[in-house]
Amino acid sequence: MQSKNEQISTLIEINEELENYFSNTIIPQLFVDAELRLRKFTPPAMKQFDLKDEFIGRHLEEIRENFRFPTIIDNIRLVIDTGTILEKEIQTTDMRWYQMNILPYLIRKENKTDGVIITFVDITSRIRDLKEQEKLITEHELLLDTIAHDIKNPLLALGLTIQMLKRLPEKSMEKYPILLGNVENSLLQMKKVVNDLVDSRWEKHKYQPGTELLDLQNIIEDVRLTLAPQILETKATIKQEIQISELSFARRKLRSVIYNLINNAIKYTPPERSPEILIKSYKDDEYIVISVSDNGIGMNKEELESIFDKFTRVRLSCEGSGVGLYLVNTIVSTAGGKISVQSEPGKGSVFNVFLKV
């Protein structure tokens, strides 16, 4: 049994440990009590949100502008009222992105929430990198596809020209047959190089680089961060029913598939309603199925027949190049999979991606 002095000494020691923790942590962190008064913050929070020592004890209403996030008080109240942890990505008015975690501060003896601890992790650079990466992937895929499909056309034209030259009179030019033969040999060599590139190397590696064991939920999280501005602007909700999470595929290819389907679901939702997206995964015989459904504008029969064509866009009023679904279909089909689509005008769409186990 500790004496009173021993108890006081223990509390002082614990408080000193807390002070050391708050002084040395590199993450912006706040402690707010149940009355929404600021009790403590870490030095990084002082720098990031321009907090000052004299703010200690103030109600958050007095200093909410420092956080540059309008709904922070509502979020804190929700955690205090429910006792649940809140995790969300937020964008502050200075256009930075944070992973914000609000944890209830529990008094276990009284079984009540006496405040919250809030942490902020700056993810601005990660979101920027993900967006840039997705842009480069799309451009890269389109470039490769265009080269592979279009480079044979000029070669074919050159071959036809040579055939025509063969049928022309030689006009007593002694070297004409030799020169023509050289041109033809060069053409054959060019064709061989291109065929080797397209039919073997390029086709082998184009849509299957670096196959690895992936966690589908991690891929979805990366895509969600990439599309964070669009999700925030449209108030989109993304729900998941993941039965199968592990699968083998190329990481950037799977990201491109998920990114394009979610991006389209957001983009093709009427402005008068918020996008509602449901992502499912399950096993179906020899396939792992990834299903993405939305409450968007939907498509009629004619539109469904052409959505996977290159440069085809369902609605010209929406931004885009018309290559997203074309790339998705090419990635999946080249990997031995397939895609099915169910859609009705005004009732949304369901894209089912079948990936071979």
Rank of each mutant, 00 (worst) to 15 (best):
D33V: 04
D114I: 14
R255Q: 08
T42W: 01
L18Y: 12
I262Q: 03
E17L: 09
L160P: 10
P28R: 01
T42N: 06
R108H: 14
D50E: 12
E141S: 14
K239M: 09
E6T: 06
P271C: 06
E110G: 01
K192Q: 11
G210M: 14
E134M: 12
L143M: 12
E302L: 05
T42D: 05
D122A: 13
K4S: 12
W97H: 15
D53A: 07
M100H: 00
K171G: 01
F308S: 14
A236L: 10
V323G: 00
G296R: 06
F311L: 15
L278D: 01
N329C: 07
R108P: 14
S274N: 00
E233Q: 08
V292T: 02
I85E: 06
E17A: 08
S340D: 05
T312G: 00
A228M: 14
R108C: 12
E54T: 05
P104Q: 01
L103N: 10
K109W: 09
K192W: 12
A335Q: 09
Y326H: 08
N185E: 04
P104T: 06
K280P: 02
V328E: 02
D114L: 14
S293R: 13
I290C: 08
D285C: 08
I12M: 01
P270F: 12
K206N: 05
I117R: 04
E233S: 11
E272W: 13
W97K: 06
P209V: 03
T211C: 00
A236E: 09
G296N: 04
K338P: 02
I147E: 08
F311H: 15
Y176E: 05
D222A: 07
L143Y: 15
